Simulated scan of single mutants.
Amino acid sequence: MKRLYLATINSWNGLVAAARSEQAVREELVILAIAIPLAFIIGVTTARAVELILVVLLLLAIELLNTAIEKLADRLTRDHDEQIGRVKDMGSAAVLVALLMTGILWVFAIAERLGIV
């Protein structure tokens, strides 16, 4: 139980640190806060509402991993390094893919709510 408690504290501290230092994380936390009630309005079923919330949480998780990669890369060197640049670009690409997934699911859910699909 103590290990679980300490892991939870570490996770919370990481989320707070990311939110304090990264605009993208703050924006996605705002999106999550908006998405939670909105998902239950847009989702045709409870399962769809949960899916809408989970995809935003997935986006946040990928953004946190990308932030961790960037912070670690910056800690290694501030000099321009082509390989580190590519790694950072890959992390950014992962966020883009997650954003596309999130957007597509939300658009589908809105179309479903409107009876278009």
Rank of each mutant, 00 (worst) to 15 (best):
K2C: 06
K2Q: 15
R3C: 11
L4Y: 15
L6T: 11
A7P: 05
T8I: 00
T8N: 06
I9H: 10
I9Y: 07
N10F: 00
S11P: 03
W12L: 15
W12R: 07
N13L: 12
G14C: 09
V16K: 09
A17T: 15
A17D: 14
A17Y: 10
A17N: 08
A19L: 10
E22G: 12
Q23K: 11
Q23F: 12
V25M: 13
R26T: 08
R26H: 11
I31D: 04
L32C: 05
L32T: 09
L32R: 00
A33I: 02
I34P: 01
A35V: 04
A35R: 01
I36H: 01
I36V: 08
I36S: 00
P37G: 14
P37V: 07
L38K: 03
A39S: 14
I41N: 03
I41V: 00
G43P: 03
G43M: 01
G43Q: 00
V44N: 04
V44C: 00
T45H: 08
T45R: 04
T46D: 09
A47H: 01
A47L: 11
R48S: 03
A49D: 03
A49I: 00
A49S: 14
A49G: 10
A49H: 02
V50I: 15
L52H: 03
I53K: 07
L54D: 12
L54N: 13
L54R: 11
V55M: 07
V55E: 13
V56H: 00
L57W: 02
L57P: 00
L57D: 07
L59I: 01
L60V: 07
L60Q: 08
A61D: 05
I62Q: 04
E63D: 12
L64F: 11
L64Y: 14
L64I: 06
L65T: 09
T67A: 06
A68Y: 12
E70L: 14
E70A: 14
L72C: 05
A73W: 07
R75P: 02
R75G: 09
T77M: 02
T77W: 03
R78S: 14
R78E: 14
R78L: 10
D79H: 10
D79C: 11
D81G: 11
E82G: 01
I84K: 13
I84F: 09
G85T: 04
G85Y: 08
G85C: 10
V87Y: 11
D89F: 04
D89L: 13
S92H: 09
S92G: 08
A93D: 08
A93I: 01
A94F: 06
V95C: 10
L96G: 00
L96Y: 08
L99Q: 11
M101F: 14
I104H: 11
L105E: 05
W106I: 00
W106V: 03
W106G: 05
W106M: 06
V107K: 06
V107R: 10
V107M: 15
A109E: 07
I110Q: 13
I110T: 15
A111P: 03
A111S: 11
